[in-house]
């Protein structure tokens, strides 16, 4: 029902959503967010990206976020899949998919989970450009997005 996965292999977001909604006719809606790797960041072409994480803490943090979402809203299941290691432009990096009876709860829970994943889950992106490689800086707008939820 609530699956959390960290993996180096690519994944297919459509298959993940199909699995989430399979076999439960009570589900009235699924909202999903798919984060993709962009080929341009801060004006420079990015050829590949490598994602590092903190094994153990990552899973714990995501579990706590999903648990909190389930406390706040009536959900009928969720899936969070996040890639680590090397990836290329247009690859899905992350999927957050949430199922519920009606759309309102699914929309809110999905946004809540991705907002907290962005500011709390220990992942770090490193981009390779023609100028060499660089660690991606955190965005203030992500902190603002998290703050809206007032934990």
């Amino acid at each position: 029902m609530n699956e959390i996965r960290i993996q180096s292999e690519p994944f297919d977001p459509n298959i993940e959503v199909d699995i989430l909604r399979a076999g439960n006719p009570a589900i009235g809606g699924v909202v999903s967010f798919i984060g993709l790797m962009r080929d341009i960041n801060e004006g420079e072409t990015v050829s590949t990206m490598t994602l590092e994480h903190y094994p153990g803490m990552t899973e714990k943090t995501l579990q706590a976020i999903v648990d909190e979402a389930n406390q706040r809203w009536d959900l009928l299941g969720s899936r969070v899949v996040h890639r680590v290691g090397e990836m290329k432009p247009a690859d899905p990096i992350v999927l957050v998919a949430v199922a519920s009876t009606h759309r309102g709860e699914a929309f809110q829970a999905c946004e809540f989970i991705i907002d907290f994943l962005k500011t709390r889950a220990p992942f770090w992106k490193k981009e390779s450009t023609s100028e060499g490689s660089r660690w991606v800086d955190a965005r203030h707008s992500d902190d603002d997005a998290e703050a809206r939820w007032k934990l």
């Binding site: 803490m57 991705i114 994943l117 962005k118 500011t119 709390r120 770090w124 992106k125 660690w135 955190a138």
Partner: peptide, 23 residues
């Protein structure tokens, strides 16, 4: 995740890192 005032004891695992950038 915690702050500088978190108490530390024998056997603990501590980590330091830059602001996170996943998703």
């Amino acid at each position: 995740m915690t702050g500088a005032d978190a108490a530390v004891k024998d056997g603990d695992e501590v980590a330091f890192f830059p602001p996170v950038t996943g998703g």
